[in-house]
């Protein structure tokens, strides 16, 4: 949800930037109005994208001096022409508009045990939870997965801080996480908090449901930009309005339709609320459902989709070189 309150915006000065992993930069901000933070909070930032102000969200990794400084960590998305590029261009002394810390992913204290699961840049939302649980002497496991070691921010620090409670699974070192084994080993009233790519979170969600564990004990936050397939350009048509838009790989279908002047409704822009749903009338290709709004059953029917995150991909076998972009025909509310 994008906040409707003006009083949450403030300015913040960049006091330090440094690279902490491949394409990942740590940015320290000094907000105008410091306040204490809690794990799971993020700030919204006004990023300048193509000369326009756009909102992006970044988890507060830590907030030293009682919130006097806010540390965020930003992954430069490979085909971003947008927010993360802007964030990586920031230099010490620059001032930007940010919100106060906002909470959509609260950690409940007092659970008998915890599993914290971070995939890639999702560690930004999880690291603070782990630090707090450690301080409280809670029973927790911190599981950090990624494709390669070089792309893992804070790996050594976390390993040192959390000792035997920490484990890393790194794909290209042959250590991929066995999700069913992870979930199978979870004691009954454990709370699992996760943030990472949609594929990882979906696998956990399914095995969690298969084991019949309480679904309210599975907590997650989506960053709203990962899918089952790599993003690729596709075409979307709305016959009733005579609209045809080319959706680039670095933008969402929602953004492309807005750019074409279609009056679209949306709220969360990360696949949670369902307000951006569109009806699918025709499809040449496949739909990459990246939302958490629809159930598996609804996704399988391919009759609607959340256009803020979900995309179309060409159906041709991935090896074919000259494959044609997917074409989606939709109706909008």
């Amino acid at each position: 949800m994008i906040t409707s309150r003006d009083d949450v915006w403030q300015s913040a000065e960049v006091t330090a930037v440094d690279d902490v992993a491949d394409r990942i930069r740590r940015i320290v901000l000094q907000p105008e109005r410091p306040e204490p933070t809690r794990p799971g909070e993020h700030i919204d930032v006004l990023a300048t994208v193509n000369g326009e102000q756009q909102v992006r969200s970044y988890s507060v990794v830590e907030a030293p001096d009682n919130g006097g400084h806010l540390v965020i960590t930003v992954f430069r998305t490979p085909d971003s022409r947008g927010g993360s590029e802007f964030m990586h261009s920031l230099e010490q002394g620059q001032v930007l508009r940010v919100t106060k810390p906002l909470q959509n992913f609260p950690l409940r204290v007092g659970a008998p045990s915890y599993v914290l699961l971070a995939g890639g840049i999702g560690i930004t939302a999880i690291a603070g939870m782990a630090a707090l649980l450690r301080r409280l002497g809670a029973d927790y496991r911190l599981v950090y997965v990624a494709r390669s070691r070089a792309a893992m921010a804070y790996l050594d620090d976390l390993a040192a801080l959390h000792g035997h409670r920490f484990e890393a699974h790194i794909d290209d070192e042959g250590g991929s996480l066995d999700v069913p084994a992870l979930v199978a080993g979870v004691p009954a009233h454990t709370e699992l908090y996760m943030c990472g790519p949609i594929r990882l979170m979906d696998a956990v969600r399914r095995t969690w449901a298969d084991r019949g564990l309480d679904r309210t004990n599975l907590r997650y936050e989506t960053f709203g930009n990962s899918g089952w397939f790599d993003a690729e350009p596709f075409v979307v048509r709305i016959p009733r309005l005579g609209v045809e838009a080319a959706v680039g790989s670095g933008e969402s279908m929602l953004e492309a339709l807005e750019r074409e002047g279609v009056d679209m409704m949306s709220d969360c822009r990360k696949g949670e609320c369902g307000l951006c749903q569109v009806k699918v009338l025709g499809l040449a290709g496949r739909i990459d459902h990246r939302d958490v709004f629809y159930s598996d059953r609804q996704k399988a029917s391919d009759s609607t989709m959340c256009c803020c995150v979900s995309r179309a991909v060409a159906a041709a076998p991935p090896t074919s070189s000259g494959k044609r972009p997917a074409v989606l025909t939709i109706e909008v509310p």
């Binding site: 949800m1 959509n104 992913f105 609260p106 409940r108 204290v109 007092g110 679904r215 309210t216 907590r219 997650y220 936050e221 989506t222 949670e272 609320c273 369902g274 958490v292 709004f293 629809y294 159930s295 059953r297 609804q298």
Partner: peptide, 23 residues
């Protein structure tokens, strides 16, 4: 715990749907 367990008009739960549950 203040966590939403049912949203009558949809098949899933919005992950951020919680209200504060105080100690």
């Amino acid at each position: 715990a203040g966590r939403c367990t049912s949203m009558p008009a949809q098949e899933t739960l919005n992950p951020s749907a919680t209200v504060a549950s105080y100690p």
